[in-house]
Amino acid sequence: KKVIATKVLGTVKWFNVRNGYGFINRNDTKEDVFVHQTAIKKNNPRKYLRSVGDGETVEFDVVEGEKGAEAANVTGPGGVPVQGSKYAADR
C-alpha cells in the first residue's frame, strides 16, 4: 500500500472492539482515517484483542487503502504500546 504520511498523531473518534475497526481523527488535517485492528502494531500487552480506546491519542502512518486513507503501524505517541479500549478483555 502506498504511504501518504508517516508519524501522524491523531485522536481515536471511536473503535468497535467486536467488529475490529474504527476511525482516528488526524491532528494535522482533521481528516478521519479508517483504522482496522490488524493495523495496530503495539497492542496493550495486558489486553487479549488488539484495539484502541475512544479518545486515545495514537501515532500512525497513513496509507492508501481500497476506500481511501487508512491507518497503518498504529502505536501510542513515540512508539509506545496503545492503551486499548476499555471494552477489550484483559488477559
Results as ranks from 00 to 15, higher is better:
K1E: 06
K1N: 10
K2V: 06
K2N: 12
K2C: 05
V3S: 08
I4T: 08
I4N: 08
A5K: 15
A5F: 15
A5C: 15
T6E: 08
K7T: 09
L9N: 11
L9D: 09
L9Q: 13
G10S: 00
G10P: 00
T11E: 11
T11P: 01
V12Y: 01
K13W: 02
K13C: 06
V17G: 06
R18I: 15
G20D: 02
G20Q: 11
G22N: 01
F23K: 03
F23E: 02
I24V: 11
I24M: 02
N25R: 13
R26L: 06
R26C: 07
E31P: 01
E31Y: 05
E31W: 03
E31Q: 15
D32M: 04
D32L: 03
V33N: 01
F34E: 02
V35N: 01
Q37G: 10
T38Q: 09
A39I: 01
A39T: 06
A39N: 08
A39Q: 11
I40E: 01
I40C: 02
K41P: 03
K41F: 14
K41A: 10
K42A: 14
N43H: 12
R46T: 13
R46L: 13
K47I: 05
R50N: 12
S51D: 05
S51P: 05
V52H: 02
V52I: 15
G53K: 12
D54W: 10
G55P: 02
G55F: 07
E56Y: 03
V58E: 00
E59M: 12
D61R: 03
V62G: 00
V62I: 12
V62Q: 03
V63Y: 15
V63H: 11
E64R: 15
E66V: 14
E66C: 13
E66I: 12
A71T: 03
A72E: 12
N73I: 02
V74M: 02
V74Y: 00
T75E: 07
T75Q: 13
T75N: 04
G76Q: 06
G78T: 10
P81A: 11
V82W: 04
V82R: 04
Q83K: 13
Q83A: 10
Q83G: 12
Q83I: 09
Q83C: 14
G84P: 05
G84W: 05
A88S: 11
A88I: 07
A89W: 11
D90Q: 11
R91Y: 09
R91L: 12
